[in-house]
Computed example of a mutant assay.
Amino acid sequence: MKRVVSIAAAVAMTAGLAACGSNDKSAGGSGNGSSGSEFKAAIAFDVGGRGDHSFNDASYAGMEAAKKKIPNLKITTAEAGEGENDQARENRLSQLAASGNKAIVAVGFVYAKSIGTVAKKYPNVKFAIIDDASPDSKGTNVEQITFKEHEASYLAGVAAAKMSKTGHIGFVGGVNVPLIQKFEAGYFAGAKHANPKIKIDKTYLTPAGDFSGFAAPDKGKASANSMFQKGADVVYAAAGKSGDGVIQAAHSAGKWAIGVDSDQALTADKSVAGSVLTSAMKNCSGTVEDFVTSVKDDKFSGGNKEFGLKEDGVSLATTGNHLSAEAKKAVDDAKKEIVDGKVKVSPTPSK
């Protein structure tokens, strides 16, 4: 981590930022030079921040990959605070734009309204938002990066059903919002395709509007423990840092956890990583890397870019080689059916 911009610092600068707007040539001037030969880019994290072993870390990995291509890249990081509002997020993004960053990545749909507002104030700065394609974040200088999480989750469901010895699996969602419901929808569909009689428990750690569900490993652990005690032997967590608790619970119970966004068999604590059966991944790293390099190379193009199995934007991890031959074949067959268009995975849970 190069530098952390705190919420307090962002708020303190709000008055000064109000005068910048779209007329601030130092922050949004033409060309991609910044502080001489230095090229500045920034990433604003979602709740859970660095060390979530999930999509915040995966997104930052994209920044590190971009630095290998852009030696003069200076990366600024900004952490999110629990329970903050749109104004706090707007202040954070404004501070980053006013500091001369040419490419700014906002991790998570919670930044939708704030990035839409700030992007208009700094038309010469390029922004990217992960997991949102709503009108709130839309702008000519905004790239909306979204994924077909339901497709990777479908494969996770197939794997879970094929590997379950009890015919009973579970799903833990961080926050009950449409994005996380996509994970649920795909997982349920894939599991039922592999085993029509499969029993699936589900729970959401917090309701819509309460984003603490993405940063509560204790709640994730308690929910998974409850499922394991009821007979589930594989639990999939789409819950950000809260998924750490699900993996811990799986390890203690001698059961399996399925990770999300990153390959959590590699990112989870080594003492419990062996309990990660597989992970439904999305290529946050590659998309962030492409965004930053496109800005540096003057090849930026805004708008929504959606990535699924066909585009290698989502996938299922094989680290640890835990899947049986039967499960591997079922997953491979399911992937081919989706890529070939023979199976359409719904992004919304069935009623």
Rank of each mutant, 00 (worst) to 15 (best):
I258Y: 12
I258N: 06
I258W: 06
I258E: 05
I258C: 05
D261T: 06
S262F: 05
S262W: 05
D263I: 00
D263A: 04
Q264F: 06
Q264Y: 09
A265R: 13
A265H: 11
A265V: 03
L266K: 15
L266D: 13
L266F: 10
T267F: 03
T267L: 01
T267Q: 05
A268H: 03
A268P: 08
A268I: 00
D269E: 11
S271P: 02
V272C: 04
G274N: 10
G274R: 11
G274P: 05
S275G: 08
L277N: 11
L277Y: 10
L277M: 06
L277D: 09
T278L: 00
S279V: 00
S279Y: 07
A280Y: 09
A280K: 06
A280D: 08
A280G: 15
A280H: 13
M281F: 04
N283K: 08
N283G: 04
S285Y: 05
S285M: 01
G286Y: 09
G286I: 05
T287S: 13
T287A: 11
T287N: 15
T287G: 01
V288L: 04
E289H: 14
E289S: 07
D290M: 06
D290E: 14
F291L: 09
V292H: 12
T293Q: 12
V295Q: 04
K296A: 09
D297V: 01
D297K: 14
D298R: 10
K299W: 01
F300G: 12
S301K: 15
S301H: 13
S301P: 02
G303P: 11
G303L: 07
N304A: 13
N304P: 09
K305R: 14
K305S: 13
E306S: 15
G308D: 03
G308H: 04
G308N: 06
G308I: 00
G308C: 01
K310R: 10
E311R: 07
G313I: 01
G313L: 01
G313C: 02
S315K: 14
L316P: 10
L316K: 07
L316Y: 11
T318V: 05
T318G: 14
T319V: 03
T319Y: 11
T319G: 09
G320V: 00
H322P: 07
L323Y: 12
S324F: 09
A325S: 15
A325W: 03
A325I: 01
E326T: 14
E326M: 03
A327H: 11
K329S: 14
K329M: 02
A330F: 09
A330I: 02
A330Q: 05
A330E: 11
D333N: 08
A334T: 10
A334P: 10
K335C: 00
K335D: 02
K336S: 15
V339E: 13
D340S: 07
